[in-house]
């Protein structure tokens, strides 16, 4: 099957720090790809290059190509908002927008003009809150401020908000690391359910989470992709010494 995302010869520099070195990757469609590695290895930078968040920092330079469905997202004339609409982000900490629960989900629909007639907004908000597994808990207080939710609920709200813009790709930047175990499990279960419809890329440094979720594993170290492949190969029979060292908990 043709890969959904292709990263070709990607190099990223922050000022003089060479953060990503010659990254070549192919990310399969409708699977969970887990990027793991010790902190500072460039996992988050790689993730940020996929929704063009890198360019928000003016000291960043990059070279190489990233293709989604064969189209270069960094090509001239590509609308950055369209790229971000295609690749939704679930951040490490949930940041609900300063508005009601309902409006958080409806926000993306409104800014992209996805609901020309207002009536369908209600249905979509309900649909995506259901999909994120939050509907039952919030259906009676949809118009209350989203900041009143617990952190775990907020993260699921962020998931619903991200799904509502109908992305093809979900980027998760350690989305469970700020959550309690039960909320984390909630999110993991949702991701498992969603992988049939979305290409999911998950950054994590929790090895057990990687083993539970991954269909495809990328191991990074010091800005380089050391090894990538199916979980069976990487976890049980790593080819690289550094992968083995990481799996054994040496760094």
């Amino acid at each position: 099957m043709e890969p959904h995302i292709q990263v070709r010869d990607l190099n990223v520099y922050y000022e003089k720090i060479h953060a990503l070195k010659d990254i070549d990757l192919e990310i399969p469609r409708h699977q969970i790809t887990v990027i793991m590695g010790p902190s500072g290895c460039g996992k988050t930078t790689l993730l940020k290059s996929l929704n063009r968040f890198l360019e928000l920092n003016e000291s960043t330079r990059m070279s190489g190509n990233i293709l989604i469905d064969g189209e270069d997202i960094y090509a001239l004339g590509v609308d950055v908002t369209e790229v971000r609409k295609k690749a939704g982000l679930l951040a490490q900490h949930p940041f609900p927008l300063p508005m009601s629960i309902y409006d958080n989900v409806a926000y993306g629909l409104r800014i992209h003009g996805m609901c020309p007639n207002g009536r369908s907004v209600d249905a979509k908000v309900q649909h995506y809150l259901l999909e994120a597994g939050l509907w039952e808990e919030v259906k009676d207080r949809l118009h209350f401020p989203a900041t009143g939710l617990s952190v775990g609920q907020q993260q699921r709200l962020c998931l619903a908000r991200g799904l509502a813009i109908e992305p093809e790709i979900l980027l998760g930047d350690e989305p469970t690391s700020a959550l309690d175990p039960i909320s984390a499990q909630h999110i993991e279960n949702r991701l498992m359910d969603l992988k049939n419809e979305y290409t999911i890329i998950l950054v994590t440094h929790i090895l057990r989470q990687a083993k539970r979720l991954a269909d495809y594993v990328v191991f990074m170290y010091l800005g380089k992709v050391i090894e990538s492949g199916l979980p069976g190969e990487i976890f049980d029979n790593p080819q690289e010494e550094r992968t083995l060292a990481y799996l054994e908990g040496q760094f």
């Binding site: 908002t81 369209e82 609409k85 939704g88 982000l89 940041f95 926000y107 993306g108 800014i111 813009i165």
Partner: peptide, 15 residues
């Protein structure tokens, strides 16, 4: 306003 809030909006494809 925390940067995370701005990023959340930008990540949804807002200008």
């Amino acid at each position: 306003v925390p940067d995370g809030t701005r990023l959340a909006s930008l990540a949804l494809g807002a200008t």
